[in-house]
Amino acid sequence: MMSKEVLMTPDGLKKIEEELDHLKSVRRREIAEKIKAALAFGDISENAEYDEAKNEQAELEKRIMKLEGIVGNAVLIDESEIKKDEVSVGSTVTVKDIEFDEVMEYAIVGPTEADPYENKISNESPVGKALIGKRVGETIEVQVPDGFAKFQIVKIGR
């Protein structure tokens, strides 16, 4: 079980709790029904449906344990304490990619909530680490998979 504190926004914690509730109340029942149906086929020693359902059950229980660990160790980011003049976990940062002259907005979140498809980057990622503690107008240079990137901080919000 996890013992490390998990930094989370209230929205991120809510999302995890909703998934956990769904897994416990809906998915457990669905998998139990699959197991019950597979047992009706008879001999479980050569029953692929039974084996598949039991494996699915094991994966589900592993995911439930992980989510319970996250919820149990969650430390909520108090949005009222997020600085507006300095990047911190919980900040929304608008940066300009100097090389490509593109403007992007990122939410700095804990690793559990990171989702590049939603522009949520972890405070432990290379870009997230480089942004923490910086102010509007500052430029960072950070190593990315295809070399180095330079970003200028344009705006910091909550």
Rank of each mutant, 00 (worst) to 15 (best):
M1I: 12
M1T: 08
K4H: 07
E5F: 07
E5L: 15
V6W: 07
L7F: 00
L7C: 01
L7S: 00
T9A: 12
D11C: 06
G12Q: 08
K14D: 05
K14E: 05
I16V: 12
E18W: 09
E19H: 13
H22F: 14
S25Q: 09
R27F: 10
R27N: 13
R28T: 15
A32I: 13
K34D: 07
I35N: 10
K36Q: 15
A37I: 13
A37E: 15
A38D: 05
A40D: 12
F41L: 13
F41Y: 04
E46Q: 03
N47H: 03
A48G: 00
E49A: 10
D51E: 01
A53N: 12
A53Y: 09
A53H: 13
E56W: 08
E56Q: 05
Q57G: 03
A58K: 05
E59Y: 05
E59W: 00
L60V: 09
E61C: 07
K62Q: 08
K62S: 10
R63C: 00
I64F: 04
M65H: 09
K66C: 12
L67W: 07
V71P: 04
L76D: 13
I77H: 13
D78E: 13
E79H: 10
S80G: 04
I82W: 09
K83P: 02
K84T: 14
E86W: 00
S88G: 14
V89P: 11
T92E: 12
T92N: 09
V95H: 04
K96D: 10
F100G: 04
F100T: 09
E102W: 13
Y106T: 00
T112C: 15
E113G: 03
A114P: 08
A114G: 05
D115W: 09
D115I: 10
P116N: 11
P116Y: 08
G128Y: 13
K129M: 14
I132E: 06
V136L: 07
E138V: 03
T139G: 12
V144R: 06
P145Q: 09
A149E: 07
K150Y: 03
K150Q: 15
F151V: 06
Q152C: 00
Q152T: 08
I153R: 15
V154Q: 12
V154R: 10
K155E: 14
I156L: 13
G157Q: 11
R158S: 03
R158W: 00
